[in-house]
């Protein structure tokens, strides 16, 4: 004789995800991809600096009008900012919790040490911290203009030329953008792996895409400070 027992109900999808290492990593992957998509748009927008002050200042003004008249002035911008803030927080909190767990899972090191994994993989944690600190500086510099030497609202071009006229600002941006490149090189492929999009056939293509994105974004972002430093943009 067989008896059937009703299986216990399992917890909600979000609780299952947040409680497991696999699910929390998926949160990191999705928030990482959201930020990556934003960065592609941001980098392309930055290139307008090469078309002159009217072009990029006009572009910045247009950003505030997206969605009008359905949305109010700057509404779209604030929605995007909130989505990005949520992504940064979730990405960071997940990374912190997972890293604590990872370090506790390997309490004693091997006596015979050997270099493991690629540079990009090994620097994900500190690279992420550098990027987090950079975002704070970047917002103070070119959004709130608190630390910007020109600091004229609406005059994006002049503010950019102003900030990159200082050597330490150039150093901060260059270091951060190199860190960004490494972070994306491992992060994009890793996100695909975490979300289950990778398989033996796609592995190479995904790694190439990750390298391509990393190079493109780093080069695109760095072209602006380099252009100011070399006098192409002044």
């Amino acid at each position: 004789m067989t008896t059937a027992t009703r299986t216990a109900r399992h917890p909600s999808t979000l609780a299952t995800l947040w409680r497991s290492t696999v699910g929390k990593k998926a949160v990191m992957a999705v928030t990482g991809l959201v930020m990556l998509l934003y960065l592609v748009a941001h980098m392309l927008g930055n290139l307008k600096v090469f078309f002159g002050p009217d072009d990029i200042n006009g572009y910045a003004a247009w950003l505030r009008t997206i969605g009008q008249p359905f949305l109010g002035h700057e509404w779209f911008l604030w929605i995007a900012r909130l989505a990005l803030l949520a992504s940064v927080v979730l990405h960071g909190v997940s990374a912190y919790q997972l890293s604590r767990r990872d370090l506790a899972a390997r309490p004693s090191k091997y006596v015979h040490q050997r270099r493991r994994a690629s540079y990009a993989t090994r620097t994900m944690r500190w690279g992420g911290v550098i990027l987090g600190l950079f975002v704070v500086w970047h917002i103070l510099d070119l959004t709130t203009l608190t630390v910007n030497p020109v600091a004229e609202h609406g005059h994006v071009y002049q503010n950019i030329v102003g900030t990159f006229g200082r050597w330490y600002s150039d150093v901060i941006y260059i270091v951060a953008m190199l860190a960004l490149g490494f972070h994306i090189r491992h992060g994009f492929w890793s996100a695909a792996q975490t979300l289950g999009a990778n398989n033996a056939r796609r592995d190479r293509a995904l790694k190439l895409t990750a390298n391509g994105l990393a190079l493109l974004l780093t080069a695109g972002f760095l072209s602006v400070p380099v252009a100011v430093m070399t006098g192409v943009v002044k």
Partner: peptide, 23 residues
């Protein structure tokens, strides 16, 4: 611990379980 996709596991596996298995 959790997976950070370093790939060390699949390199060490004596039976060649591939890394995309984790995906």
């Amino acid at each position: 611990g959790g997976c950070t996709n370093t790939g060390e596991c699949a390199t060490a596996c004596p039976k060649g379980i591939p890394l995309p298995s984790i995906a």
